[in-house]
Design a protein around this nucleic acid. Structure first.
Lengths: 183, 183
DNA sequence: CCGTGGTACCTCGGTCCCGAGGTACCCTCA
DNA sequence: TGAGGGTACCTCGGGACCGAGGTACCACGG
């Protein structure tokens, strides 16, 4: 997840660790702040695997900065993670939002649509948080006001996301169709 | 999180590990399935800490079952986690939903309302996933269709949840007021 | 009567991440 | 001029969870 976000931000531009830290904090920080004791070891791992390149530059303000740049191998890795995301990136909201933040890097509209379709399938499979035996319970079936809240909010989210997904998939697939005709 | 869910389910009734597993799978499983290699060590930790009590019973169907029961210390721990939840239970959606699933165990409506108020404060602090410098970007400000999707869906969720939160807090506080008058 | 599948529990190595700590540099302001 | 605060990077111990493996028991079908 963190690794993914790092590669995603570096795909756009060269950054140093500190700047990366603030961007990641913006993306996921209000939900789950990321400790820098997590960030730097992760950067080191990526550098050791040659997925990012490190250049030490004299710091303009404070300590010397380690400018980070994504390597061709890193780009390939990111694109692969975008094209065939792990299941948790489809089902877990935090992961999914993170994926969406960088999905534009996958330039092929058909491939983008395919990823959105996976999320669509996931959202359309009937599921609830609470069950009576095998039967998924709906908001109306539940007395507990807090559990009813969970179901109501989840339903509103689901509706909004389904609408957006369907519209966007249609647009992307139309675009993909036009590109196929042109070639 | 897992520890919390275990105590939450056991607060209601005695269960064995396997049954606990299916209930937790229902609650959080469609988002992030929980491995039984995680569940059993966690149960053991809780048992060692005397938060749950274990009784081995002859299995009616298959292997002998370890019936689990929450202890008074376990109940106290759960109620404390409900009354003063850690920050991540307020900000992270998965944690928050899990908290809501068991919030009814906290019988005092004023205490329940206080927890909902913490979530309200969190949702009302302006935040975005994307920034232009310091300025949080809104859906209309973003060109990338995927990032716009994130912002649109997040806004819809936020609206639905705020409406529910405000209505429920009002109800709970009215109830708390009546109870104060009565005593 | 033996294999398969479902129930129930457990172990162990490994990954991801946290958080509390530390170092070093530079700027600002009293 | 020196104390405080912001920038930038790093280490280390530990906790939560995964996942691939294993054991054992029972029921059912061929």
């Amino acid at each position: 997840m963190l690794e993914f976000a790092i590669l995603g931000f570096l795909f756009d531009s060269r950054l140093h660790g500190w700047e990366l830290r603030t961007r990641i904090a913006a993306l996921t920080g209000h939900v789950r702040p990321i400790a820098d004791g997590t960030l730097y070891p992760t950067i080191k791992r990526l550098a050791d695997a040659d997925l990012v390149l490190k250049n030490i530059e004299a710091g303009s303000i404070a300590a010397p900065r380690h400018m980070l740049e994504i390597s061709p191998a890193g780009e390939a890795k990111l694109l692969h993670m975008l094209r065939e995301p792990a299941e948790v990136f489809i089902t877990d909201e935090n992961h999914w939002y993170c994926l969406l933040a960088f999905l534009r890097h996958l330039e092929d509209p058909a491939a983008q649509a395919a990823v959105l379709r996976r999320r669509l399938v996931f959202l359309e499979t009937p599921a609830s948080f609470f069950y009576d035996g095998d039967k998924p319970l709906r908001a109306e079936d539940v007395d507990d006001p807090f559990r009813r809240g969970v179901l109501q909010v989840a339903r509103a989210t689901s509706r909004a996301e389904l609408a957006w997904l369907k519209a966007t998939i249609a647009e992307l697939e139309a675009q993909a169709g036009r590109e196929t005709v042109r070639n």
